[in-house]
Amino acid sequence: MTDVTFGRLMDLIPREAWPHEALSFTPWLAENIDQLSEAVGIPLDITGTEIAVDTFAADILARNPSDGTVVLIENQLDQTDHTHLGQIMTYLSGLEAHTVIWIAPKFREPHLSAIRWLNKHTADDFAFFAVRLRVVRIGDSPFAPIFEVLEKPNHWDRKLKEAARPAVSNDAESLLRAEFWNQYAERYPEIAAVKPKSGWNYWVPVAGGRLLFSAYIARKDCGVYVRPPWSGDREAVATLLMPLRDELERDLDAAFNGGKDHFLVRKRAPGFGMREDWPALVDWFEEERRRYTAALQARLGEPTDGE
């Protein structure tokens, strides 16, 4: 028995949150693009919405600041259809996009097959994602969006691991991030080996490598969390941490389940855009890294054989 009160996670119809695709969902997604960015593992800088291509309009156009390539985001609030698949192919050539992210609450199997075929038969510098949009809540809690990646390029997880050394771009946003991380490394040389360069996150193994501690920077807010190692999976981490949930939430003042594969999430506002706030933000990151490391090490220790 337990004294914990449980609620039921309910899936809602996305149109309950966004009544109109172009007028409500697209603007919301552009404003909260960091959530999609975390789901697919690609940094995204918005360059425009409702971009005209022939007689159509692409929902969102973004750029991957790590390599400068164009990212096309096509979203629906209903089940996928052939019309949107055709539009995606039109936009792909007309906008010279290298990455396509198709978002919908439900994908028909022929459309998932089309995404798989494109990932298999196009050049390695092209990437196609099918992302399921969910809106959930528990009881009367606020609505929570969830982006579930249903299809992605072959070996994408390995590519993300290799991308831990992103190239420094010359765009202003990348240079600003690089300047921030350099200041962090100068202030705390022990993290210099992590070499986040111009990326959004850095990752440090904790608990004997069974978890990764991550600090991220964004315009809206910054934060920390733990996630599975590159070779791990979400369920294994949930099983590892669940018995410690109450005490870790209390001691770290963190939200246990942050969606996707993020656990024990803490956020801090504002974002990293104001240089005068950087010393305090750097100190906060380092304090959190040490607190998380100590708390997890004390409870999990080093892995035993077979773990």
Rank of each mutant, 00 (worst) to 15 (best):
V4Y: 07
S24E: 06
T26L: 09
A30H: 04
D34C: 08
E38C: 04
G48N: 07
T49K: 08
E50Y: 02
V53K: 05
V53H: 08
D54F: 01
T55V: 15
F56V: 02
D59A: 01
P65Q: 07
L72D: 09
L77M: 08
H82E: 09
H84K: 14
G86I: 00
Y91R: 12
A104Y: 02
A104G: 06
R108N: 09
R108W: 01
L112M: 11
S113F: 00
A114Y: 02
W117L: 15
H121S: 09
T122C: 11
A127Q: 03
F128M: 09
R132Q: 15
V136Q: 15
F143E: 12
E151V: 08
P153C: 04
R158M: 02
S169G: 13
F180D: 04
N182V: 03
A185P: 04
E186F: 00
I191A: 13
V204K: 15
P205G: 12
L212M: 12
L212P: 04
A218T: 03
R219Q: 08
D221G: 07
S231A: 10
D233L: 04
P243L: 12
L244G: 08
R250H: 12
L252E: 06
D253A: 13
N257Q: 13
H262Q: 10
L264S: 07
K267R: 15
R268P: 03
G273W: 00
P279T: 01
P279V: 01
A280Q: 11
R289S: 04
R289P: 01
R289L: 11
R291Q: 10
A295R: 11
Q297E: 15
E307A: 05
